[in-house]
């Protein structure tokens, strides 16, 4: 099912994501697309993820449309000013892309071109608002569009934080994104179901679907790395222990992911699986979670 229809039907919605490579080789992405066809409701394509230069989200989304998938065009505010962002939204519409996910974007110094200028002409809330205006038939300068867009707009939220201020600010910004036009949310990876429940108790009142982020663990080292370096990701010690004791780390990682999906099932409207290199294993996770 397509993303919008899936969310509107009330079914537990599954999205996943692919990251284009550095270069023009699209064979792996097309292979993944074939494997995912009919198994997920939407596929995000990351936009220069971690500020590392690579093939763009727009071209890749267009390839996925051709393959019959429903891509979610991720757009960060880091690299383009409002002229380029709006133009790429028009491009995306022409390529048959239906969904856009508006995000701030990692700072250039975190990526492989730390010498690049950072743009942030618009912020993520303003980008959501811009897309709504373009759906209504106008650009940011108030000019009428000759043919408007028709995007289903999403945004992101980090449900687990390490300070009270960060938690409240996430909820405030989430509400602002909804008022600006966001119709669904995907979250940072969740490993602590109780903490996520606490977040959802507050976010529920907004009545906008939330897809909880799932990143399958590959190793103890990966879990520790994320705990140390990735904001908003907290892998509890008991999961790290479970990984450490497992003989077959791959199977264990996929099992934990499937278990998390089932534990989160009653708390939110779906999951967003970020497999980070394990895209081909997504169907296996869905099978383990009895979602196929």
């Amino acid at each position: 099912m397509a993303l919008k229809e899936a969310l509107e039907s009330g079914k537990f919605t599954i999205t996943t994501e692919v990251g284009p490579l550095k270069g023009t080789d699209t064979s792996e992405i097309l292979e993944v697309a074939e494997l995912l066809d009919g198994k997920v409701d939407g596929v995000n394509v990351t936009d220069q993820q971690s500020a590392v230069m690579r093939l763009g989200s727009l071209a890749t989304c267009s390839l996925l449309v051709e393959k019959g998938l429903d891509p979610i065009f991720q757009m960060t505010c880091r690299d383009r000013n409002r002229i380029a962002l709006q133009s790429d939204l028009l491009n995306a519409h022409v390529f048959g892309i239906k969904n856009v996910l508006a995000i701030t974007g990692d700072f250039p110094t975190l990526g492989d071109h730390p010498d690049a200028a950072d743009v942030y002409d618009l912020d993520s809330v303003q980008l959501v608002w811009t897309i709504r205006r373009m759906n209504e038939g106008y650009d940011l300068a108030g000019n009428e569009l000759q043919g408007k867009t028709d995007f289903f707009v999403g945004a992101v939220v980090t449900p687990l934080t390490d300070t009270e201020a960060a938690f409240e600010l996430q909820l405030i910004k989430m509400e602002k994104k909804i008022e600006a036009g966001a119709r669904f949310f995907q979250t940072q990876a969740v490993y602590d179901v109780d903490a996520f429940e606490k977040f959802m108790k507050r976010a529920e009142e907004f009545d906008v679907p939330v897809l909880a982020g799932i990143i399958p663990l590959k190793s103890v080292g990966m879990a520790r790395y994320m705990n140390k370096n990735v904001a908003g990701v907290f892998v509890p010690e008991h999961l790290i222990d479970e990984m450490a004791k497992a003989e077959d780390k791959t199977t264990k990682g996929l099992e934990i992911a499937a278990r998390l999906i089932n534990d989160l099932k009653d708390l939110c409207q779906g999951v967003h699986i970020m497999a980070i290199g394990w895209e081909k294993k997504v169907p296996q996770i869905l099978q383990l979670a009895n979602l196929t």
């Binding site: 701030t104 700072f107 912020d123 809330v125 939220v157 390490d162 300070t163 960060a166 910004k173 904001a231």
Partner: peptide
């Protein structure tokens, strides 16, 4: 705010410190 965001933080702060310059507090916090 290192990213000059005007509608709220990016979500990259860690323990109240900026993702871009960890020596600096998150402006939004």
């Amino acid at each position: 705010c290192s990213k000059r965001l005007i509608n709220g933080p990016c979500g990259g702060a860690s323990n109240g410190k900026c993702e871009v310059t960890p020596e600096k507090p998150c402006g939004w916090e």
